[in-house]
Each structure stands twice: as C-alpha cells, then as structure tokens.
Write a protein that binds this DNA or RNA. Structure first.
Lengths: 164, 164
DNA sequence: CTTGACCTTCCAACGATGGGAACCCCTACA
DNA sequence: TGTAGGGGTTCCCATCGTTGGAAGGTCAAG
C-alpha cells in the first residue's frame, strides 16, 4: 500500500512517515518500480506503535529505544520500565512548573479588578515580582533552562538530524 | 552600561537581549562611538519585566501586548486580565493533557514487573492501546495538534520573525 | 604592545510538524 | 489515445525560544 493509505491506517501523516524514515526511526521501506514507497501490515503496526508513544509524550529518541526493545524478544521489561519512569519524571516536573505559573497567575488575576481603571496587580507583579510563596525562585536553575534541558536529548551534532 | 552588564542585572542573556531587539520586542537602544549597545536603568527595568513574564510562561507575542499596556498609562486593567486569563486557560489545558499522559503511564508502569523477563504491559499498550478511561481519545483533535495550535500565535509570515 | 575579556554581526542548530513548489506517475473517462 | 485529477517524489522554508560558534573589532590592564 502507498504512503497515503499507510498514513490513514496508522494515524501518522505521510509527511511524518517520510520524516521518521529520514531520521532513521523507521527503516527504509521497499519501493515500487515507479519509486513509490510500499508499506505492509507490519509497517502499519510499527507506525501505530509510534503514534501511541507520541500520544503519551515520548520523544523520538525515547521512541527509538522503545522500538528496539519492542523488536528484541529477549528484552528485560526493567529496561522498558526505566524509560517510562524517566519520562513520567519529566512530565511531573513540567506539570509542576506549569502549575506554579498557573497558580501565581490565578492569584494575580483574582486581585485584578479587570475593569476600565489602569491599576493592575498583574502588571505590578511583572514590574517587580512579590515573592509570596514558591513561584520563580532564582535559586532554581530557572524553569526555562530546565525546559531546554528536557528537550536536549543526547542527540549528537549531525547535520541531517539522524538518530544516533 | 554594556550588554553584558545589562544581562547580569536583568537576568536576560545578552543573546536574548539582542534577539528581543531584533524582533522588535524592545526598541533599539543607543550605541557608543564604537558601536556597543548602551543600556540605562529603564532598559533594565523593562528587561526584568520581560524576564518575569517569560518565567510565567507568556509567549513573546503576549509579552509584546503586556509591554504596550504597561507603557500605556490609560490602559484598562481588563485588557491585562484578559491576556492573563487566556494564558491560564492554555496552561491548564496543557497541564491536563500531560496529566493524562502521566496517569496512563503510571498505571502501565505499576503493572510492569520491571525485571529480567521480556513481558511488558507498557509495550503491550503501545502495540495496541487498551482504552481504559480518558487518555488519548481519537475524537479529540489530538494533543499534538493542540500543542501546535498553542505555539502558533497569529504571527504573520515575515522573513525576519518580527512582531507585527 | 600584548593579552584576555568583552563587544559586533551572521549562520546554524534543536524538535516535531506543516506548507508549498516542481515534477513524475497512475487511473478513469471521453 | 489524450487528458484531467489526485496521488506520489524530493527539496526548501517556517514555526518558537534559545544557545553555540565563527570571524572580527574594542577596551582595559599588565
């Protein structure tokens, strides 16, 4: 089946299927005489696996590891669990950061009249933050730096963005 | 004071200060005879405002609006509050998505022995997800599409990435 | 006068995804 | 058999916020 059909059946867009092939997340698939990619049932199965992992928030690097474990019938479930737990930790940390932001903003918004008058505790806080609890300690390495560190998998500096 | 000092005092890196100037978030600042950017106390104040807004998770487009309101002494606090509330809604939605992911993964991880044996409910779920609750309904426009829609401010298609 | 720390501009990268151009291919229909 | 259309193909560009680095100019202290 061609890439459009594969996309429809797997829930992964044709663009993304080509991208996954390019970065080596999925192996190169066979071609028809005219150069069309040709997918089989097992390819769809793999694409659905990827789709589900993406929906659970795994990065492509993590999905790569999960795929290898999936294919390895002598895998240790501990290895899979370790990846999952690390990802959960990431999620929980990001949730906590965003929760802090939301809580701080909700507090400020409650204090803001939200009418015609210019006085606004939100702007006052932005101007010079009142540290009334947990949010935005400068001692922490800063949420933004952390977010970057989350994205920055150990992906090496190769020009084409390949995995490993 | 030069850009390095401004960066130290505001908590915004020199790189980012130049970037903010480039996209028009902050106005072009004066230069010394030798071409060095020269910052004053009010510039630092503005940079700290930006820094705080970033720490609260506002996008640059939103910060742009907030800065304009900050400068406008006849602003309506309702306009500020509206921006804040919209951002809170974004945060809460993203938190909810990530919470779903984390909850689903925690459930799977609990069911996984995590030992030497290859059997793993996490991989089994990725292979063919068991819909046992809320997570990953295909009826929802998909969390990834939503995340993209969050980033995609109404920023127009100009080559240099300027703000309006 | 040299050295090192600073500044300048410009280019590229990250991650995951979409848009679009230019071009080739396949099928159905007149 | 010609053609229209809806696929496929590759390649480049954009997003968003931030950092890294190269090549070169400047400044202050030794």
């Amino acid at each position: 089946m061609n890439i459009g059909e594969a996309a429809r059946r797997s829930g992964v867009s044709a663009k993304m299927i080509r991208y996954y092939e390019q970065i080596g997340l999925i192996p190169s698939v066979g071609r028809t005489e005219s150069g069309y990619r040709d997918y089989g049932a097992s390819d769809i199965h793999m694409l659905r696996f990827i789709r589900r992992a993406r929906d659970l928030g795994f990065s492509t690097a993590e999905i790569n590891e999960l795929l290898q474990l999936w294919r390895d019938r002598s895998r240790r479930s501990g290895d899979v669990k370790r990846i999952a737990l690390a990802h959960i930790t990431n999620l929980r940390q990001r949730i906590a950061e965003m929760e802090e932001m939301a809580a701080a903003l909700e507090h400020l918004a409650e204090c803001c009249a939200g009418d015609e008058r210019p006085d606004c505790p939100i702007l006052t806080d932005l101007e010079s933050p009142t540290e009334m609890g947990e949010e935005a300690r400068p001692s922490k390495p800063s949420p933004r730096a952390f977010r970057r560190s989350l994205q920055r998998g150990q992906a090496s500096r190769n020009t084409k963005g390949n995995l490993a």
